[in-house]
Simulated assay, not measured.
Amino acid sequence: MTISKINVINIIKTISYCGLGYLSYLMVLITIQYIPIRFDVAFLAIKQDVISKPYYQISFFTHVYTAIFVLLLGFFQFSKRLRKKYPKSHQAFGKLYIGLIILLSGPSGFVMGIHANGGIYSQASFCLLSLLWVYFTVQAYRYARKKEWRLHSKFIYRSYALTLSALSLRLFKWVIATTVALPPMDIYKIVAWAGWLVNLLIAELIILNEDRRLVVLKDGAK
């Protein structure tokens, strides 16, 4: 790989991390709105038809309070430097990331998906998202236990791609709303699917690129 290509890749990585960091900061601001617990702010202002149900209250606040930690934990798990320098911290944070998704964030997201705005179209998307989120994360944990690190890496990419749907959904919603004249609910139905399918496609492209790179390195070592 030439020096110019390396520089371009480093620039892209830097921009991506900065963008992800900024969007994560915005998510923290959104989460703070629900501290202390309130039922009449932000998203909940349009969910008054279900917020009175205790199981929805538990699911919503469980999801909100844990998802932000999942997002931030995953943010640092992909740094090779941190993995090599602090392997035990990487392992501990990884277990916390996995546990939060499987036990709390994923199941609570599924319950919220059942009551998603936009009818069956959006509800199907968010419920499928939650199921895949838990599945990918379980698989990542399973392969880590077996020390099959390449498969572990693939499923962690997929898991975190779905974790990032919390950010991409809002980003896509803003982009569409500012460029296309569509009713708000139509936009919501679009981003309900685009918010995670686009992320998953990008994850698969990253996985495919890494597989090709490993093949090249393996062939070069022969």
Rank of each mutant, 00 (worst) to 15 (best):
residue 220 G to P: 00
residue 145 R to T: 04
residue 45 A to Q: 10
residue 74 G to R: 01
residue 199 N to P: 08
residue 219 D to R: 14
residue 176 I to Q: 03
residue 158 R to K: 15
residue 166 A to M: 09
residue 91 Q to Y: 09
residue 136 F to I: 09
residue 43 F to P: 00
residue 165 S to M: 01
residue 84 K to R: 15
residue 104 L to I: 07
residue 198 V to E: 06
residue 222 K to F: 12
residue 67 A to H: 04
residue 196 W to M: 02
residue 144 A to F: 04
residue 83 R to S: 08
residue 117 N to I: 13
residue 219 D to F: 06
residue 61 F to K: 15
residue 194 A to W: 09
residue 217 L to P: 05
residue 160 Y to W: 12
residue 175 V to M: 07
residue 107 P to C: 01
residue 19 G to N: 09
residue 35 I to K: 01
residue 209 N to I: 09
residue 221 A to N: 11
residue 20 L to E: 05
residue 32 I to T: 06
residue 150 R to N: 08
residue 136 F to T: 03
residue 66 T to E: 06
residue 97 Y to F: 11
residue 34 Y to Q: 08
residue 14 T to E: 09
residue 118 G to D: 02
residue 77 Q to M: 09
residue 145 R to I: 07
residue 170 R to L: 10
residue 39 F to A: 07
residue 171 L to G: 09
residue 26 L to T: 13
residue 28 V to W: 14
residue 148 E to G: 02
residue 198 V to Y: 05
residue 197 L to V: 15
residue 203 A to M: 05
residue 90 H to K: 04
residue 76 F to N: 13
residue 5 K to D: 11
residue 185 M to F: 07
residue 94 G to Y: 02
residue 176 I to R: 09
residue 81 R to I: 10
residue 39 F to R: 04
residue 70 V to Q: 03
residue 31 T to P: 02
residue 132 L to M: 07
residue 96 L to E: 01
residue 209 N to K: 14
residue 55 Y to A: 07
residue 25 Y to G: 08
residue 61 F to C: 03
residue 30 I to A: 05
residue 104 L to V: 00
residue 98 I to V: 15
residue 84 K to E: 15
residue 102 I to K: 02
residue 8 V to Q: 06
residue 170 R to N: 07
residue 80 K to E: 11
residue 127 C to E: 13
residue 173 K to H: 13
residue 80 K to N: 15
residue 124 A to H: 05
residue 61 F to T: 07
residue 191 V to F: 01
residue 8 V to A: 10
residue 57 Q to F: 05
residue 182 L to V: 05
residue 186 D to H: 14
residue 147 K to S: 08
residue 37 I to R: 04
residue 145 R to F: 06
residue 185 M to N: 11
residue 206 I to D: 02
residue 15 I to K: 08
residue 182 L to P: 01
residue 201 L to G: 12
residue 164 L to F: 09
residue 89 S to E: 10
residue 31 T to A: 14
residue 13 K to N: 15
residue 194 A to R: 02
residue 53 K to A: 10
residue 111 V to S: 09
residue 212 R to H: 14
residue 93 F to L: 12
residue 136 F to S: 10
residue 208 L to G: 08
residue 214 L to N: 01
residue 166 A to S: 11
residue 164 L to T: 08
residue 52 S to R: 12
residue 194 A to N: 03
residue 110 F to C: 02
residue 154 K to S: 01
residue 106 G to E: 05
